[in-house]
Design a binder for these strands. Structure first.
Length: 144
RNA sequence: GCGGAUGGCUGGAUGACUGCACAAGUGUGAGGAAAGUCCGGACUCCAGGAAGAAAUGGCGCCGGUUAAUGGCCGGCUGGGGUAACCCAAGGGAAAGCGCCACAGAAAAUAGACCGCCCCGUAUGGGGUAAGGGUGAAACGGUGGGGUAAAAGCCCACCGCCUUGUUGGUAACAGCAAGGGCACGGCAAGCCCCGCCAGGAGCAACGCCAAAUAGGGGUCACGCGGCGCAAGCCGGGUUCUUCCGCCCAGUGAUCCGGGUUGGCAGCAAGAGCCUGUUAGUAAUAACAGGCCCAGAUGAAUGGUUAUCAGAGGCCGCAAGGCCCGAACAAAAUCCGGCUUACAGGCCAUCCGCACCC
RNA sequence: GGCGAGUUGGCGGAGUGGUGACGCAGCGGAUUGCAAAUCCGUGUACAUGAGUUCGAUUCUCAUACUCGCCU
């Protein structure tokens, strides 16, 4: 499934000029299942409180904002209350770190884990995300 | 004071910094169960209209209440508890069919294993069902009379049935007379009787945009079989009846196998709060006031401070430290039911002990 | 969100008011020089909790879990 390339001239060029967003608008949140599946096949960094997946978008994928981010909590995390709580904490640490450390043209996906996402102290969770972003941006050999 | 019974309420508070969704106004923003999806409705579409039946499913003491219910309220009957109170799918087994394993003589037409009694006396014939034994259940129970032994055979009480009568809207209860005891249990087995229900569900449904296959709808002409003709007979449309409509082909016109985007449905409602009146109550009527979430990879938060409330640990004490909640998050909306739930609060009632 | 099914040993899978088949797997034995195949034997189950019934895997209700369908 390839999108028609005529309707968006050069999305990455526009995005580089824009200042880093301090908060995420609705267009910067991943909502489609296909985007999540692509991110899950790219880079991955496992931390105690969450799992971070990241992917550099191709040139033919237009986007309004330079950085996009998604959150996922499956039923393994717990019931609806536990899932919502984990997603909110992930959203909060992402709001603090991603605008500074995220790279333009990348998609990030944060996955909640069963107990740690809800109970790990907030400051430690922030540090976890910082180190995770540092490691995931490091050049590495592509996975088999 | 201790132990209980019932009904109801609450589901942390106030800030600071910083965010999210909807709105565009100084704003608003999870629950008692938002849950399970077990019932009942509103609403929407489908079935051509009306009437009816069958099938299937559900409900089931009586009366009331409600938009409706299998909910709720009041009562009755039976059972449990010293009591407050609690529990009950609680119609019909003399319309019919079916089942009642094992044990036992016998499990529903009745009949007789061990027995008991009489006659006869190796064997047998007759009477009887008191006692034994089996079982979840054995053809009224207890006591007395009676008898060869027995038996409602007779009597008293209890139970049961029928009839009458009184009270009650009724379920039912009381009383009287009679019968002399039949009518075992299971209907959450089939079934009978009475009542209720057309089907699907907001992912219903309507519109816009995008998208792609050669099928379908509508309208006009016209039309199935038999007959020379008048006419007669069909088939489909929900099972039947009535009414209505349609039928092969040609032409015109529209939709269309795809897509998962947007708008709308979608937030003023059987609404909430307060009061009065009627009613034992559920509830109803009236008056005044109020506007109270609307997301769709799905908002309603994150961090932190103080306090309240209860708890845990250390300590002789003063005091110090820790935790600071449980269950569970709207997804069209209501009325119930069921299930989960930390801690706290209120009211009424019962039993026991003590004091006056 | 709505609708609908199901749960029987380690696995698959009958049964339907009266104590549960069968197959594969496992274990033991026989056979064999040793194995395979074959034969004999054997253990282990009605998702959980209530109710109806003399008696429930079966009937009824509630709960838990699993699966499917609808945009």
């Amino acid at each position: 499934m390839t999108s028609p390339e005529t309707q968006q001239a050069d999305p990455n060029g526009i995005a580089k000029d824009a200042p880093p967003a301090m908060s995420f608008s609705a267009s910067s949140i991943l909502r489609k299942r296909a985007d999540f599946l692509k991110a899950s096949r790219a880079r991955r960094q496992v931390m105690p409180g969450f799992i971070l997946q990241a992917r550099q978008r191709g040139a033919d994928e237009p986007s309004v904002t330079p950085i996009r981010i998604g959150y996922t909590c499956s039923k393994k995390v717990g019931n609806a209350v536990a899932r919502n709580r984990a997603k909110r904490r992930l959203r909060e640490i992402a709001r603090a770190n991603i605008p500074d450390q995220g790279k333009s043209g990348w998609d990030y996906v944060l996955i909640g884990r069963r107990l740690e996402t809800a109970t790990r102290p907030y400051q430690i969770l922030l540090q976890d995300l910082a180190t995770a972003l540092e490691r995931i941006h490091a050049p590495r050999k592509p996975r088999r």
